[in-house]
Simulated assay, not measured.
Amino acid sequence: MCLCINLKGRKQKKKLTRQTVIETVTDRISCLPSHVIDHILSYLPIREAVRTSVLSKIWKNKWYTLPNLVFDRQGVFSEDALVNQSKLVKIVDHVLLVHSGPINMFKFSEYDLIDEVLVSDIDRWILHLTGRFIIKFVLEVLMEEKEEYYKIPWCLFSCQSLHYLKLQWCWLKPPKEFGGFRNLTSLDLNLVTMTQDVFENLISGCPLLEKLKLTEVDGLTQINIHAPNLKIFEVFGEFEGIRFHNTFQLVTVIVDSRLNLSPENNLRTLHGRSSKLLDFFDRRPHLQSLVIGSCFLKV
Rank of each mutant, 00 (worst) to 15 (best):
I232R: 05
R132D: 05
N84Y: 08
D115W: 01
D38V: 02
N84M: 09
R182V: 06
L287F: 00
S109I: 13
V54A: 05
P174R: 06
E48Q: 13
T26R: 15
D112M: 05
H286T: 03
E140F: 04
G101S: 11
F71W: 01
L184E: 05
R28F: 12
D123Q: 01
L191G: 04
L172P: 14
L82F: 10
Q288T: 07
V89P: 00
T26M: 15
E210L: 10
E177T: 08
F281M: 07
V217C: 14
L278C: 05
V119Y: 04
H163A: 04
F233I: 09
F181R: 07
P285V: 11
E144T: 06
F236R: 13
L32P: 12
Y164N: 04
I223Q: 05
E110T: 00
L267A: 07
Q12N: 13
F181T: 04
I254L: 14
L208W: 01
V50W: 06
T215G: 01
R73S: 11
N190W: 09
Q196G: 07
C31N: 15
C4V: 10
E210H: 10
R73M: 13
L209I: 15
N246T: 05
I37Y: 06
F106W: 08
K14H: 11
Y43S: 06
V54T: 09
N183W: 01
K107S: 15
I114G: 03
M194K: 01
I126M: 14
Q85F: 08
P228I: 14
K136R: 10
N61G: 02
K151V: 14
F244A: 11
E264R: 12
Y164W: 09
F71K: 00
S204E: 10
K213C: 13
E264P: 03
L127A: 09
E240Y: 04
K176V: 11
S109G: 00
N229P: 04
Q222S: 07
V117E: 11
L212N: 00
N266K: 03
F108T: 00
L187R: 02
M105P: 03
E147R: 09
N61R: 08
S158I: 00
T195S: 15
L118P: 00
S109V: 11
I203E: 09
L142W: 13
L88Y: 02
V92R: 02
G205T: 05
